[in-house]
Amino acid sequence: MGVAKWIGAWPVVRQLAGEDPRREGARSRRTEEIRPRTGEADEVVRSVCPYCAVGCGQLVYVKDGAVTQIEGDPDSPVSRGRLCPKGAASKQLVTHPGRRTEVLYRRPYGTEWERLGLDEAMDMIADRVVRTRAETWQDEDEGRKVRRTLGIASLGGATLDNEENYLMKKFYSAAGIVQVENQARI
């Protein structure tokens, strides 16, 4: 690149030469060379914002097995590509360093968390469900058939998928667990 051309490419020179200083005249060579992360993704997956019930469309950009960006989906008739601060922060929701990825266990009267394997935790939870259910089972309540336990309860958030809610309700009902609730009433 000749010196004149090099100098001529400086934003300030271009601005003096009449380019709009807030638009093309502001663009430096570095800017020219920057490519969006979204351009390099291996895969773009269509999703939906997990925060509020507007249901804005999201495009999830994945590269090398990691989420590199989450953008609004311009095709969505709900959101037309927009996301609010929460939706726009959802890449951080899934990638932030404080996210927990290990099972933790606090024994009765314990003062600290302990590590526990996932399979072991699942076995222990299943044991407790079976035990508590057996101990608190009611075939009848004041002479009326109820077939249930009031010893176990559940409270779910409203970011549960329909399929998840369905399996929860199905399992709980079959187990006789009736105290099943959701953010939907709170």
Partner: peptide, 28 residues
């Protein structure tokens, strides 16, 4: 006795949400 089990995020599982207008939208 407390068990804490870490959960998958919305991009780490597929499923449907129903939004406020009764619209079911699938997440891949």
């Amino acid at each position: 006795e407390v068990f804490f089990l870490p959960a998958a995020s919305h991009v780490e599982k597929a499923g449907s949400f129903t939004n406020t207008q009764r619209l079911l939208q699938w997440r891949h």
